[in-house]
Design a protein around this nucleic acid. Structure first.
Length: 893
RNA sequence: GGGCGGUUAGCUCAGUUGGUUAGAGCGUUGCGUUGACAUCGCAAAGGUCGUAGGUUCGAGUCCUAUACCGCCCACCA
């Protein structure tokens, strides 16, 4: 055998880095301009610069790279724009932690300017890690267009967006109740607050009425907020309290007088039926306060200790205050009871600490006007969400959207382009840093200290990365983008905001399709987190099984929008698949190497040849259909089954025989092996780019060696990554027919193998067989070599006839109407065989009865004709099969 | 309180225009290594598709209800 240089197992370690560098250096990741073709564009969801690769990244890279490579192979100018996000809070926290650890210095001690400088230094040092890891996954994105949300161009875009919204009156500054994160000392948006069900206490106490002996019983879960109460509310029709409306209550301990008001918001059935109103620290109370013109009393410092409004409790932590005030109220006889209570506690998505609602001056985006068009484009179908069910979630959120608090009291981020005037107090918002107040001309202006929510800049990502607000060639060519692919967990955070911003600033949706993938969870379905210790590192998986294995696993183990519980076993299985591809390639390569010169005339295709071509054609069609429907996982599974189950397990085994049937046959077989392998590698490439590219390159080299001409009709492209995607074709009639005939042969082979296994016939032993094939006799006869090889039959003892007298002392088998007799001397237990055949007859009998009943029922009239015909055919086959079985049984007696 | 997803073989999951005997991988059992691959091959066992109704000639697939698990949204003190 000719020596071929492929190692026995696929060594991804020696392949992945080299190929990635090669692809990139050849410029394959950059779009090939073609004015005639519709470009395919994806904006990569920018990972946090501080981030380290997790399986969520691996997931989006796998899916987006699949889409990108597929589009590229179909000839579209393809652009996948990578980048990273400055991730305000996350990054600032990391740098703060680092500074504290290494230099024992806080950011306050360092000062704003120096801290931001340090953070940039940090970014330059560590920001490349995540992008290196993205490369490791094989992402074929255009690194020459890589962007960062805080780089110059994007900062300009952010500024432009802010100014435009401000000028339109869609950004405003105001004092409202917001979510305050005491640890981070910044405001956060509603979306950044998560509610966790926790055990707490419900405190019920007396609100004394001034000048009376009466009191109103009131309950709260946060007694410290009593200090900020500015009213007690009851339902206007509540007979218990109606007479007290308009009276004055005294805030416990502080003895501050507050009114008893009425509001239908109060639920008479719930609790005591009376409500303490703390407009400064509760969203519902805030609204009631607005309705009734109640004053707002803030009792908290930014670090959630009590402030001067808390009187004697000033300076205490809120929880300490809670204990103390309750103890003091007990002493004063104002308490009624405490009881365990399950409540929803708001916690910061970032730090996990309890978020305090409080009134603060912040910047907001007016969302309603932006939400309307964003709803419309999805409703009218100009923007499609896949899977569809998420559209409902999207509607629900946008229909009930509230204004977005965009200012953060941080240092790392886009500084708000607003200047406050010390003279006139007015605000100047400008694209270029102003040196004087736009209203009074004073030079005593100072820029607003706040920065913008990270998601504000992310919202501009699809167009800011292409050059907006400049009218760049990229923006004109590649915007709007094609698909936004991301996890469903950031539908609101990011996707909805991109749609709103895109429509507002560019007048069109930033992409025509949103494809949402599921979340990767641990093997028990829990979210992965460092604290839980269930974090599975994709780098470790890649080290162990290779990138292709991880990618194929992620792509084929779930369906769109559904979560996936990671399982290392399955990744291993896919490593084996990569190896299978590799070894099939080794066999094909050796066949190519051994084939001589091109024969003068090509022999006609064999049955197996026709079968595998028909199967391949079917696969290409199915894959095209599935890709069209975003069913990438199913497509991958089908390619896997075809490659392993049909091509490797059956065709290649037969090909080994055909290669020994003369030079012409060897050539035609090698050519077909190449054809099927080549198309398989093309179909697989978007899933498993490395092993396919490596093998394809070697295949191409082997096929071109010595000036021969194996391979695709149109010739070999320069690399698989830019090779053509297989076009669906219809199989020729004889190939379609081969599927049926070959199927029968396969069944016969399986039946014989089954008996051999059951009877423990030595694998090496060639056994004789008599096959009564009826009208199929010529077909079986033509396949005798293949049949004998795969069923380990003795070619000399293989007797295929139209009809025959069953030999005595043979094991009878029936496959459809084909009867097989295996004369295994000394192994035949007539009684057992009779029992087996009788059982088979019974089973067929039952089927016949079932079908006869079915066909005499309404089914025959109501079902479509072709369905009925199929059942009739089946019945006929079963009846014929029954005859064969009976004949075999008779022969045994 | 509203909404969504899941429930299919021991385990992890497919099964997308309803078509009549439900599939894969892993695991299990038996057998097998000189020539693509032991990261392999051959064969086998294993499921009344959560439950109860309904629609239909026909339901894992559509409808209704319900149980359990998970998630999202929501101002009940």
């Amino acid at each position: 055998m000719t020596e071929f240089a492929l190692p026995k197992t696929y060594d991804f370690r020696s392949v992945e880095q080299r190929l990635y560098a090669w692809w990139e250096s050849q410029g394959y990741f950059r779009p090939r301009p073609d004015p005639a073709a519709q470009p395919f564009v994806i904006s990569m969801p920018p990972p946090n610069v501080t981030g380290e690769l997790h399986l969520g990244h691996a997931m989006f890279v796998a899916v987006e790279d699949l889409m990108t490579r597929h589009a590229r192979m179909r000839g579209a100018p393809t652009l996948w724009v990578p980048g990273s996000d400055h991730a305000g809070i996350a990054t600032q926290l990391q740098v703060e932690k680092e500074l504290l650890r290494t230099e024992e210095v806080t950011r306050e001690e360092l000062g704003r300017e120096a801290f931001v400088e340090r953070t940039w230094a940090w970014k330059h040092k560590y920001g490349g890690i995540i992008t290196q890891q993205i490369r490791r996954l094989g992402a074929s994105c255009d690194w020459s267009r890589e962007r960062f949300t805080l780089d110059e161009g994007l900062s300009k875009a952010v500024r432009e967006a802010f100014v435009r919204l401000y000028e339109k009156g869609l950004i405003y500054r105001g004092t409202y109740l917001i979510n305050w994160s005491p640890g981070l000392r910044t405001a956060v948006s509603d979306l950044e607050v998560e509610y966790a069900e926790e055990q707490g206490t419900l405190y019920t106490f007396k609100y004394p009425i001034a000048g009376k002996e009466e009191f109103i019983p009131v309950a709260t879960t946060r007694p410290e907020t009593i200090l900020g109460d500015t009213a007690v509310a009851v339902h206007p029709d509540d007979p218990r309290y109606r007479h007290l409306i308009g009276e004055t209550c005294l805030v416990p301990i502080l003895k501050r007088p507050i009114p008893v008001i009425h509001d239908t918001y109060v639920d008479r059935e719930f609790g005591t039926g009376a409500l303490k109103i703390t407009p400064g620290h509760d969203p519902a109370d805030y609204e009631i306060g607005q309705r009734h013109g109640l004053p707002i009393v803030n009792v908290l410092h930014p670090d959630a200790t009590m402030n001067e409004n808390a009187g004697p409790y000033a300076g205490l932590d809120r929880y300490e205050c809670r204990k103390r005030i309750w103890a003091d109220m007990e002493k004063a006889g104002l308490t009624i009871k405490t009881e365990p209570y399950t409540m929803q506690v708001p916690r910061s998505q970032r730090g996990g600490e309890v978020v305090e609602p409080l009134v603060s001056t912040q910047w907001f985006v007016r969302m309603k006007p932006l939400a309307e068009p964003a709803l419309e484009v999805v409703r009218n179908g100009s923007l499609r969400i896949v899977p569809e069910r998420f559209a409902k979630v999207y509607y629900n959120w946008l229909e009930n959207i509230r204004d977005w608090c965009i200012s953060r009291q941080l240092w790392w981020g886009h500084r708000i382009p607003a200047w406050h005037c010390a003279e006139c107090g007015q605000i100047t918002v400008a694209r270029i840093d102003p040196d004087r107040c736009a209203h009074c001309g004073s030079t005593r202006i100072e820029q607003d200290p706040d920065v913008l929510d990270t998601w504000f800049s992310s919202g501009l990502w699809p167009f800011s990365t292409l050059g907006w607000p400049e009218d760049t060639p990229d923006l004109r060519t590649y915007y709007p983008t094609t698909i936004m692919e991301t996890g469903y967990d950031i539908l609101f955070f990011w996707v909805a905001r991109m749609i709103m911003m895109g429509l507002e600033f560019t007048g069109q949706p930033p992409f025509s399709t949103v494809y949402l993938h599921g979340l990767v969870r641990d093997d028990r379905g829990r979210k992965m987190s460092k604290t839980l210790g269930n974090f599975i590192d994709p780098l470790v998986l890649m080290d162990e099984y290779g990138t292709d294995a991880l990618r194929f696993y992620l792509l084929t183990s779930s369906t769109p929008g559904n979560d996936i519980n990671v399982s290392a076993d399955r990744v291993e299985g896919n490593r084996n698949f990569a190896n299978k591809i590799w070894n099939a390639g080794r066999l094909v390569l050796s066949a190519v190497a051994r084939a001589g010169d091109r024969p003068a005339s090509m022999p006609p295709p064999t049955l197996a040849d026709g079968w595998i071509r028909a199967r391949k054609a079917q696969l290409v069609r199915d894959v095209a259909r599935l890709f069209e429907a975003y069913q990438y996982g199913e497509a991958g599974r089908q390619i896997y089954e075809f490659f392993w189950g049909d091509f490797a397990d059956w065709y290649l085994e037969i090909a080994k025989l055909q290669l020994d049937e003369g030079a012409a046959r060897a050539w035609s077989t090698a050519a077909l092996m190449v054809e099927v392998l080549d198309d398989s590698l093309r179909l697989l490439h978007p899933f498993t780019p490395f092993v396919t590219e490596e093998l394809w390159g070697r295949l191409k080299a082997a096929c071109q060696a010595g000036g021969r001409s194996f391979g695709p009709e149109a010739g070999w492209e320069e690399a698989l990554i830019v090779a053509r995607w297989p076009e669906p074709t219809r199989p020729r009639p004889e190939e379609a027919e081969a599927v049926g005939s070959f199927g029968k042969v396969m069944e016969v082979i399986r039946a014989i193998r089954n008996v051999r296994s059951e009877k423990a016939v030595e694998p090496q032993r060639r056994i004789p067989a008599f096959i009564r094939a009826g009208v199929e006799a010529p077909m079986f006869e033509s396949q005798r070599a293949m049949l004998a090889h795969l069923a380990r039959l003795d070619p000399a003892g293989l007797n295929i006839t139209e009809d025959l007298t069953p030999p005595a002392g043979a094991i009878p088998l029936v496959v459809g109407t084909i009867e097989i007799y295996l004369p295994l001397a000394g192994m035949v237990d007539s009684a057992a065989e009779r029992t087996r055949l009788s059982r088979e007859i019974e089973a067929v009998e039952a089927q016949v009865e079932r079908l006869e009943k079915l066909l005499s029922s309404a089914f025959a009239q109501r079902a479509p004709a072709d369905v009925v015909r199929k059942e009739r055919d089946k019945l006929a086959e079963l009846k014929a099969s029954r005859e064969s079985l009976v004949a075999s049984l008779d022969a045994l007696q």
